[in-house]
Nucleic acid binder design. Structure first.
Lengths: 297, 297
DNA sequence: TCTTGGCTGAAATTCTCGTTTCAGGATTGA
DNA sequence: TCAATCCTGAAACGAGAATTTCAGCCAAGA
């Protein structure tokens, strides 16, 4: 590698840093590359360390001096600014690039496809349903979408009461469907290959007068027959696997929308949940695993 | 006027400049703002003037001193970097559009950010590790990333043997870490606010000579201290919640890559798994895991 | 041509900034 | 628990930065 970017170096050296150095590293990444272009004293203040620590941090990265480090930052900056338009990795590397950019480009395409496909009114209607606290909410996933369902349920549970994630195994779903009542909402996930069991489940839910929302692929799962709202997502990747990333993204959008829709109510719930959760953005490491080898020549 | 940008000031003062000053101005505009962040001497050389001229140029712009001028440049840079504005079909409606397109545009931005940040070699190294069947694989998620971890584990389990997803509760994780052996791989997820428990877990894993891979946000979880490989992901959405979508996408990319890397081996597994329920692979892998962990230290 | 006024950059000066040192404090291993 | 080791930041130090000075230079007008 001719020129590893400073940022890359920081990432790969992260493990070697002591806790004060890591604080400097994080501060730099948080305001990159600007903070590194400031004088040492300012860097130190803003990362709540000392000048000496910043110098050690820079040395650890392999630069001969602070000015040397800054020169590198400026060089990078020039390069980056020079090509502001062609920088989209999606466009540059679609045909022949590395795996990750290529794959990502496909996902972006899927996202755009999906956004075009889903009518705004439909999306808003679904969000409103999901945010409605008077309705209990049941979330059901298929074989490959179970974790996505879990993610949706986990977040909505923080925002509002009455959220339940149904178990994955079809056998236990049969029992659980007894809990579904009229005026409840059921969010289902089903992408190919479609699960016949889910269709039965959806039929039963509708019979109980629940409102069914379906997230599926663009070929539309048979569950749609029983659903009030359908959100079709693009899932193709060109590889062995279909992608659930768009379903996941859709869920995040729904969560965000539902939270924002009823902010005051959600806020207090979120805050009380925060209190329980572990806090420590800046946990100091209690361990020194090994002596660092410093001082090369 | 609140704060005229430096560039604007240069333009409007252009008439007042003497010829040497104008040379300095043109040089700055030609490599903006980088050249201004360099020391006076370098600015002078690269604009073929003298240090004194550069100082006069800066004074002419109305700045009290050269450092003062630089501070302004840095402030601008911070602001500007914050909105890199990649142009994507979805992002046309970023400002005022409907919720879903706006949200999606943000995710696309995050994806692009992340792809730029992650070195190709790092990604490939991680995929190779994950695909390596000689190593058992343990997957651990944090509070908000548990479902993402589950998704990764569920798919990898189809591709290869020896995959285990650890439970969410820290208490049970403590027991489970006993199964981690030397030459195992541990994939961890930790985004802010970071879970101090996960750092302890990572430290323990490393002590057992396992190789730790971390998926985190761009501010880098303290877990990184113990990790061999770190994949930093952009997670900001501008809303209440951080987004795990990029983590999810990264997982899909890893899954796709790992599958493709060892296609023949994966193929037969996938085919035989098609008919079988997803839970049945689990018993087998548990056996492998405990057998393995007794052997080495 | 000579003079004047002002621009320019080399060199001197000043002082800020980067660097090093060291002692106190924290952590680890015995 | 105690010693050994390592991390950390305050302060001293020295290098190199910004700034100022000034003599030379050029252009324009007499």
């Amino acid at each position: 590698m001719a020129q590893a970017s400073v940022e890359t170096k920081v990432h790969s050296a992260m493990a070697r840093f002591t806790s004060a150095e890591a604080r400097a590293a994080r501060a730099l990444l948080g305001d990159y590359p600007t903070l590194g272009l400031a004088p040492v004293a300012e860097f130190a203040t803003r990362s709540r360390t000392s000048a000496a620590t910043v110098l050690r941090f820079v040395a650890q990265l392999g630069y001969a001096s602070y000015p040397d480090f800054q020169r590198r930052l400026r060089e990078e900056l020039s390069e980056r600014i020079k090509t502001p338009l062609e920088k989209t990795p999606a466009s540059t590397s679609k045909r022949c690039g590395a795996f990750l950019p290529r794959f990502t480009a496909k996902l972006v395409e899927n996202l755009n496809d999906t956004v075009m496909r889903v009518p705004q009114a439909e999306f808003e209607a679904v969000c409103a349903l999901i945010a409605d606290r008077r309705r209990n909410l049941h979330v059901v996933g298929g074989r490959f979408t179970d974790s996505v369902a879990a993610y949706l349920a986990a977040h909505l549970r923080i925002v509002r009461p009455g959220v339940r994630k149904l178990e994955e195994r079809p056998a236990s779903r049969a029992d659980q469907q007894l809990d579904i009542g009229a005026r409840d909402t059921v969010v289902m996930f089903d992408i190919r290959r479609y699960d016949p069991d889910l269709e039965r489940f959806a039929a039963a839910a509708r019979k109980r007068r629940a409102t069914v929302v379906l997230l599926t692929d663009i070929w539309i799962s048979p569950v749609a027959r029983h659903a009030r709202h359908v959100l079709p997502c693009a899932i193709e990747t060109g590889s062995t696997w279909d992608s659930s990333a768009v379903l996941f993204a859709m869920c995040e959008a729904m969560i965000a929308r539902a939270t924002e829709a009823d902010w005051n109510a959600a806020k207090s719930r979120i805050e009380s949940a925060e209190g329980v959760s572990p806090t420590s953005g800046d946990a100091k490491s209690k361990k020194r695993l090994s002596a660092r080898s410093r001082g090369r020549s």
